[in-house]
Design a protein around this nucleic acid. Structure first.
Length: 153
DNA sequence: GCCAACGTTGGC
DNA sequence: GCCAACGTTGGC
């Protein structure tokens, strides 16, 4: 299996339930170069994506999504009314790229951050790395499989 | 609300 | 190109 991904979202802002309701959505507003590069350079349509709820009482992986588009310029960078407006970006030279994600399935059971930290097989999962703040990151295939396994119980 | 960790900015 | 200051993320 190909490399998978993990994306973070604050459920108050945009939850996995919101993604299920919408079917798919453009992942706009990413303003970190590393995260952008993953979307722009490495994601492929069909890649599986773990959907993580952050900044909540029980941070947890809650669902599976999928990359649903090629990368394209994030429209909010050109919009002066948007909180994500970037005055240095122009349509001729866009700075920020995004992809669409579509909902695949909620996990049978949420897997909390606390629980992930207890699993030896996941010790070097990027999500758990010290001080990690990336909102878009790769997930090793074996880690992806292990998370789905945990979600069954 | 606190604060550690990290990314970005800008002066030099 | 260095690095201090600042802003942001995100768990707790």
């Amino acid at each position: 299996m190909r490399r998978a991904w993990l994306i973070k979202s604050e459920p108050d802002c945009y939850s996995f339930q919101d993604l299920e309701r919408d079917g798919s959505t453009g992942w706009e507003g990413v303003r970190n170069y590393q995260a952008r590069n993953f979307m722009r350079d490495e994601m492929q349509v069909g890649d599986k994506v773990l959907f993580y709820h952050s900044s909540t009482a029980q941070p947890a992986i809650v669902g599976v999504a999928e990359v649903a588009s090629e990368p394209y310029p994030d429209p909010t960078q050109f919009d002066p009314q948007s909180e994500y407006y970037d005055p240095k970006a122009t349509p001729a030279e866009p700075r920020w790229q995004q992809v669409d994600f579509k909902a695949v399935t909620p996990l049978p059971r949420e897997v909390t951050l606390a629980e992930l930290k207890e699993v030896e097989d996941l010790a070097d999962m990027r999500l758990l790395a010290r001080g990690n703040r990336l909102s878009v990151m790769p997930v090793e295939p074996e880690h992806y499989a292990r998370v789905l396994e945990l979600a069954k119980r």
